[in-house]
Design a protein around this nucleic acid. Structure first.
Lengths: 231, 231
DNA sequence: CTGTCTTGTTATAAAGCGGTAACAGTTTCA
DNA sequence: TGAAACTGTTACCGCTTTATAACAAGACAG
């Protein structure tokens, strides 16, 4: 039950693969026949596995793969090819393919190799922001302090995230409204103050303002208080 | 420059592999000729990659592998065998092998496949996805909690499986529709909500939303709730 | 063809985000 | 000193999102 991209110019083989993966393995299959076409799908859509033919019109599979990998793509890829020569296999694997299947092959073997790749846990390259014992994971919308999760609403989260991305800078109210509220016309300083209030309520361990995670610099703006520092 | 275990009873082949990996690839190679002997080394020593022959005296490679995997071993394993039949390949891969190489093979191809395995992040080899006391077996379409089977329809199953494959990530409604539903279908957020509702009805032990297996973050999306955590 | 299972729609209720308004305390500076 | 601006806090509410139940249209097997 995974989302699979198949890039293969042989229509008959395409249909066979697609049917096998759909009916027997219950995967969702998307098909391209042209290397160049596939590259955009490759980059815009998240697949769980990609089955990529070596010989393709438009752009060769190996170039598609190289291009994708150099752009940071991490999706597991199985190369599919008629070439059985050593150099090709090496080249394929070294170009970032995760597996390699030589034509002709059994559909069941392809299915088994896909299962094998699906077992790999997804690579989570989390760029977690840390501030003292506080950890904020922007992509997973998670804030934790020593394992315990704290909850903030999206806007409050965005505000705290912004401050944590620029831990030393001081931002005026206008700057914060502009950058966190994204130039929303009806963003007001009151809204910001209330948002800060909510963040403090959740994140602060003490209710003393002068040890709050968000520090106010009189008449200048707000910034993150350096960890462990009380005014 | 990795630590490689080679288990192979053909002495000549052993030497060839060992020399190739040592001289050309600069790996550290350790060799066993007996399945039973290798199992202890397997379990006591941390290797980066294991090259494991299928036919071995003492204990067959496949049994060594199964034993190792069921004990929680995660080291990448390349199975080596003369058998070229489909059933064997499936069995090998489904028993937890990460790759499969048929004799005769080029030493350079083995080296390339080892390089490929070394590139990928540590693997957890298991067909079943676990989440707390819940186990989901994608290939057998089964969900169980402490032995008792739970029943979900295919689509609901696919949704839960997807979430369990990405247990930490949060997904927007659109992302889930794109990845679990056929993207060209006219899937609607309502359908997704109802599917989630059905999953919760079956899987949750309590009907309190804040301890449901599927957690909603308002205006952000859905994710799996870490086991044993209530908001 | 008929009952069952799947999968979605619709209607309605509930929850919670995100903000406004009001006001109190504090600082700045003429 | 006193007004004005700045900041913190609370209460409250409109609106979007989410939950839930009831129901209906297909799909599918017997």
């Amino acid at each position: 039950m995974a989302k699979v991209l198949v890039v293969e110019d042989d229509i008959d083989l395409c249909v066979a693969i697609s049917d096998s993966l759909t009916d027997d393995e219950h995967h969702t299959v998307e098909v391209f026949h042209d290397g160049l076409d596939s590259l955009s799908a490759f980059k815009t859509t998240e697949y769980d596995v990609v089955v990529l033919d070596w010989d393709l019109p438009g752009m060769s599979g190996i170039d598609v793969l190289k291009n994708f990998r150099s752009a940071g793509g991490m999706t597991p890829v199985i190369m599919l090819t008629g070439k059985n020569e050593l150099k090709d296999k090496e080249l394929g694997l070294d170009s970032g393919a995760d597996d390699y299947l030589t034509k002709p092959f059994h559909l069941k073997e392809l299915a088994a190799r896909i299962r094998s790749l699906l077992r790999r846990p997804p690579v989570v390259q989390s760029n977690v922001l840390k501030h003292g014992d506080l950890m904020l994971d922007p992509s997973n919308f998670r804030i934790t302090r020593s394992g315990d999760e704290l909850r903030l609403s999206p806007r409050d989260f965005a505000l705290l995230e912004f401050l944590m991305r620029h831990p030393t800078n001081i931002f005026s109210v206008e700057a914060l409204l502009a950058r966190v509220w994204n130039y929303d016309s009806d963003a007001t300083p009151e809204g910001l103050r209330v948002a800060i209030r909510r963040i403090r309520k959740v994140v602060d361990t003490s209710d003393a303002l002068d040890s709050s995670i968000i520090e106010n610099v009189a008449r200048v703006g707000y910034r993150l208080r350096p960890p462990g520092k009380t005014l």
